[in-house]
Structure formats: C-alpha cells, structure tokens
C-alpha cells in the first residue's frame, strides 16, 4: 500500500465521521437534558438542503452554513414547542420530525437536484493543504476542525461549567431541578436548539463538502447512526469522537474494498455494514447491564411543572 492510498483512506474516513460526529454531539447535549429527539435525520436533511441552496445562490459558503444552522434550529424548536410546551410524546414527535424533514428537503431541493457547487475553503495556507502528505492534517474543510473543537467544548461544558452541571441535573431529575428553582423547560429548549444547530452543520457538510451536490435523502440514514452513536458512547464526548471515527471507517470500507478489487463479499453487504454495525452495537450495549445506568435518568420523560 502506498502513501497515496493511505492518505485517501484517512481523508475519506474523516469525511464520513465528521457529519455524524457533529450531529451526535448535538444529540448528546439534547439527551443529557432529558429529551430524546429522534428527528436528527430530518434536521440534517433540512440543514443539507438549506446550506446547498443558500450557497449556490449567494456563492458564500459561510452564509450557507449559517443558514443551515438556522433552518435546522427552527425545525428543532418546532419539535421543542410540541414536546416541551405541549408535552407531546417525544418518540412520536421525533419520528414525525424526520419524516417532515425528508419531505420538506425534497420539496425545497427540487430545483437543485443534480446541480453541484464548487467551493473551496481552507483554514490553512494553500501550500500546506495541497502538500501530498500534510494534506492529511491540514487539507480539510473548516467544518472538520470545528467538529474537533466542538467535541472539546462539549466535554468541557458538561464537566467544568455550572451551566453544564445544571443541564445534567435537569436530565437527571427534572422534578428536583424544578423544585430547586431551575427552569427545566428553558434549559431543554436551549439544549434542543443546540442539537438542531449541530445537526444542521452536520447535514450541510454532506451537500456542501462531501458530495458536493444535492440529491433527495442525501444523508441516507446517517442521522440514525448519529443517534446510535450517542448510546454507543455512553453519553461521553470523548468516546463519541472515537465511535464516530470507528463508524466512519466502517462506512468507507465498501469504497476502499471496491477500489482494491476485494470481491469476497457482495458490495451490497459492505454497503450495509454501518447499519448492521449500528444494530450489533446497540444490541451488545443493551446486553451490558451497567450501560442503562449511564443514560440520563429522565430521558424521554415529559416534564410539566405544577403551579
């Protein structure tokens, strides 16, 4: 195996891991506050189509990413209004959000199907990013570095800040947090909005960086993998990073196997690998008894303050 192949493997793994890492980081915060938002896939798609459309109209990728965050946050706040203010069932509402996101993104993206955008953005000098070897470190979209930065920020926020402590408290026992005098619904709204913004960035990474083009259901179920990843990581940001890259490696395996002429197993099976891995990981984790204790105790339980 020569350097070029290794470089290309590393770069595709980073590409596959980044969006699910971003979406999963958002969902981690949401779940830590005691809310289960199954609409990650929908929010990613809304982010993806918004980012693509805005960028192709304005030609400025920064505005595209920003609008993707705003659009996905709006979808998340809709979910928040239904589940937090109106106390609807979180699981059903989350599923509905995904279906809504798939439909809305297909509709909004109708005129963009098959189009491509050509953007190039790097945080580092062009010389470094184009160097045959340093590309592995410096040659990514700013969103990739942003995902590392956010992993660190989320870990620091949860462990070291008072706001993080309050967020965990709300997810751990909403009733207790309320009686001490914290606004459970307020904290959860903020968490849900953050989850939406992160899913939005993750989604637009597909349409603006990875492909970069728009097609219906572009994210192809990666939102679900992000959800599984949160459980896999036992709600810990460090393990989330590890898990995202593990899944990223599995996802790109098909690509490299094909390129290397590996034909022992049907390529369809290889393509299904990440989804099979998700199921296997979730089944294994639920077998391990202590994993259940690590979930926020109030996860998916609606909270209604009695006045």
């Amino acid at each position: 195996m020569n350097d070029a192949i290794i470089i290309s493997i590393v770069m595709t793994v980073v590409g596959a891991a980044t969006p699910i890492l971003l979406a999963a980081l958002g969902e981690l915060i949401v779940e830590k506050s005691g809310v289960l938002n199954l609409g990650v896939e929908g929010m990613m798609l809304i982010g993806a189509v918004t980012g693509f459309a805005v960028t192709s109209v304005t030609g400025v990728p920064m505005i595209g990413v920003f609008c993707a965050m705003i659009a996905a946050t709006c979808a998340a706040l809709l979910f928040g209004y239904l589940t937090l203010t109106l106390s609807s069932n979180q699981v059903a509402t989350g599923l509905a959000l995904t279906i809504f996101g798939i439909g809305l993104s297909s509709l909004a993206g109708e005129g963009y199907v098959g189009k491509t955008i050509d953007i190039y953005a790097s945080v580092f000098p062009a010389g470094l990013a184009e160097h045959s070897f340093f590309r592995v470190i410096f040659g990514y979209s700013p969103i990739v570095y942003f995902s590392f930065f956010m992993t660190f920020m989320v870990a620091w926020f949860l462990k070291r800040t008072r706001a993080g402590l309050i967020l965990r408290a709300v997810g751990e026992s909403a009733g207790s947090a309320h009686s001490i005098g914290y606004s459970v619904v307020g904290v959860r709204y903020a968490a849900v909005a953050f989850g939406g913004a992160m899913a939005g960035v993750g989604g637009c990474y597909y349409s603006m960086v990875l492909t970069p083009m728009w097609a219906e259901e572009l994210t192809a179920g990666r939102g679900w993998i992000a959800l599984a990843l949160v459980v896999f990581a036992a709600w810990r940001p460090g393990r989330l990073l590890l898990g995202a890259y593990l899944f990223g490696a599995v996802m790109t395996f098909e690509l490299h196997a094909k390129a290397a002429g590996f034909s022992l197993v049907a390529p369809e099976f290889l393509a299904a690998m990440p989804y099979i891995a998700t199921i296997v990981v979730l089944a294994l984790i639920s077998l391990r008894k202590s994993a259940g204790a690590k979930a926020p105790a109030c996860l998916a339980q609606p909270f209604k303050a009695s006045t």
């Binding site: 402590l165 408290a169 751990e172 026992s173 001490i180 105790a297």
Partner: peptide, 20 residues
C-alpha cells in the same frame, strides 16, 4: 428541606450541593 428530596442520584454530594 423537602419531603421528597430534590437530589440527583447519579451525581456527587458536592455537585448536588452546588446545584442548590
């Protein structure tokens, strides 16, 4: 001091007190 304690089971004593 509440009848039903407003405590957070999975957190330390220190964190619980800090929250109050």
């Amino acid at each position: 001091v509440f009848q039903h304690f407003s405590l957070f089971e999975a957190m330390t004593v220190l964190e619980n007190i800090a929250l109050g």
